[in-house]
Design a protein around this nucleic acid. Structure first.
Length: 359
DNA sequence: CCTCCACTCTC
DNA sequence: CCGTTTAGTGGAGG
């Protein structure tokens, strides 16, 4: 079962202020540049009627919703997280194995407690009722025999949808869909497939595995071969370990001198460090992310000799990496800091990771 | 087998 | 005109 909370950030805002419900609501990520620079994070369905959706520039959204009584709100991450936490702990009670995928999505393995699909359908009904009555939110749910098809099913009808795809119906359900509907097939991969004359999932299923591996690499090739047949063996897993923590920000002005960026760098390092400490983690590697003035992206990173949780290690390494990058005369628009190779401070991570870093 | 980095994807 | 966060793959080079 895949549960997807509808237009989540915007629905949260409607939840704490129901008068927003019949107006277009747009949740915005404003950058430091002022002048409504930034992008749309989410919007409610009223706003989507006018073409306002995730990813478009805020300025464009305001244009599209001129004279439409629209509301523009900044992202309030802490509030959405608190709502999400309530929802997730409710959902968890319905599952044998529970996997939260993001702030607004989760997979529930319900196979041991559901005899058949009708049973699962009823369970989904109960979930939707409880979510509506006790928290006040709607969601879309997809049910099938694996994660891939469950996810595509939840996507099929929304908002407030419920779609069951039985084993025998999988091919019928997916074959006519465009390849872009497959999980992990985004804009780039879809374009490449289209250029090969592959548009629908049915088209994809006619290509042999060797060819797909040649073109897309081993992992993706095998994935595409199986996915086009509705085959997916990924287990629902409860594991939640964090692997990296990063912060990125848009500079007030494009810059190419270290002095113009030092303050932002310090801020970013502080934020990342705070989150490392809050989660009781150690990191093994420090990196920076640069978005150039032409929006090209580059990154630099460096592994440390020892695990660390010190702010100084983040700051020093990030600064050196940045200075090094600036020597190449790049002009940067956005700057980010990242730590990875994370391990729980008590060594309480996966055995594999423990062995990786202990040696 | 490891490190670094570009690239892709997701929300 | 173009924001933020996280995870993973694969190539190059050591």
């Amino acid at each position: 079962m895949h549960v997807d909370l509808d237009y989540f950030y915007a629905q949260c805002e409607e939840l704490r202020n129901p008068s927003l419900k019949d107006r277009p609501v747009v949740i915005c990520v404003y950058s430091a540049r002022g002048n409504d620079s930034g992008a749309v994070s989410t919007s409610n369905y009223k706003a989507r009627e006018y073409g306002v959706k995730a990813g478009i520039p805020i300025r464009q959204a305001k244009q599209l919703l001129k004279d439409k009584d629209a509301v523009f709100l900044p992202v309030d991450e802490p509030y959405y997280t608190s709502v999400s936490d309530m929802v997730m702990s409710m959902l968890r009670r319905y599952a044998d194995v529970f996997e939260q995928v993001s702030i607004d999505e989760a997979f529930l393995d319900v196979s041991s407690r559901c005899r058949d699909m009708d049973h699962a359908y009823n369970l989904a009904k109960s979930i939707k009722h409880e979510l509506k009555n006790s928290i006040g939110l709607t969601c879309s749910i997809g049910i099938s025999v694996n994660k891939l098809v469950a996810k595509m099913a939840s996507d099929h009808r929304k908002p407030d949808g419920l779609t069951v795809v039985r084993d025998d119906d999988i091919i019928k359900f997916i074959s006519g869909m465009s390849v872009g509907k497959l999980l992990w097939v985004g804009r780039k991969t879809e374009e490449r497939l289209n250029k090969m004359g592959i548009h629908t999932i049915e088209d994809l299923a006619r290509i042999d595995a060797q060819r797909l591996i040649e073109v897309f690499g081993k992992k993706m090739g095998i994935y595409l071969y199986n996915a086009s047949r509705g085959i997916d063996d990924e287990p629902v897993r409860d594991d939640q370990s964090v692997k990296q923590i990063s912060r990125i920000t848009t500079l007030k002005k494009n810059a190419n001198a270290i002095d113009d960026i030092l303050e932002d760098l310090r801020m970013l390092c502080n934020d990342v460090h705070k989150r490392v400490m809050e989660s009781d983690l150690l990191f093994r590697s420090v990196g920076i992310i640069l978005v150039h003035d032409d929006l090209r992206i580059s990154s630099r990173s460096r592994s440390l000799k020892h695990l660390s949780n010190s702010l100084d290690d983040i700051l020093k390494n990030a600064r050196e990496l940045l200075e090094d990058a600036l020597h190449d005369g790049v002009i940067i628009r956005r700057l980010g800091v990242k730590v990875e190779g994370l391990m729980d401070i008590k060594g309480q991570d996966t055995l594999q990771r423990f062995m990786d870093t202990a040696s």
